[in-house]
Amino acid sequence: MFNAPQCPKTCSPSTTMAIIATEGFDVPEGMEQLARRGAKACPERIILVEEDDGTISWPPGAAA
């Protein structure tokens, strides 16, 4: 499961950056490696990778 902190669902017209709020989602079977790569590509490190056992594998040092 991937989790992101709660964010406002607003986007300023003066920016090209969108903000997405989610409680997390399950990654389809077979897409886990691609999802991990996507999380690691996030420069802000706000995408957490929660493994099936509940541990957080990304970013390093994150707590569940």
Rank of each mutant, 00 (worst) to 15 (best):
F2M: 12
F2L: 09
N3K: 10
A4N: 12
P5H: 09
C7I: 11
C7V: 11
K9V: 13
T10Y: 06
S12H: 07
S12A: 07
S12E: 12
S12P: 04
P13I: 10
P13N: 04
T15D: 08
T15G: 04
M17F: 03
M17L: 14
I19V: 06
T22G: 05
T22Y: 03
E23S: 09
E23D: 13
G24M: 03
F25H: 11
F25N: 04
D26F: 13
D26G: 07
D26L: 15
V27N: 00
V27Y: 00
V27M: 00
P28T: 09
P28Y: 02
E29H: 12
G30R: 02
G30F: 07
G30L: 04
M31G: 05
L34C: 07
A35K: 00
A35S: 12
R36C: 06
R37W: 05
G38M: 12
G38C: 06
A39C: 14
A39E: 02
K40R: 10
K40N: 10
K40V: 09
A41K: 13
C42A: 01
C42M: 01
C42W: 02
P43L: 02
E44S: 11
R45H: 14
I46E: 14
I46R: 08
I46C: 11
I47K: 00
I47F: 02
V49T: 14
E50D: 04
E50Q: 15
E50S: 10
E50G: 06
E51W: 07
E51R: 15
D52L: 12
D53Y: 03
G54I: 03
G54D: 14
G54C: 05
T55H: 08
I56A: 02
S57C: 02
S57D: 02
S57G: 07
S57V: 05
P59A: 00
P59C: 04
P59F: 02
G61L: 03
G61Y: 08
G61H: 01
A63I: 14
A63D: 07
A64K: 15
A64H: 13
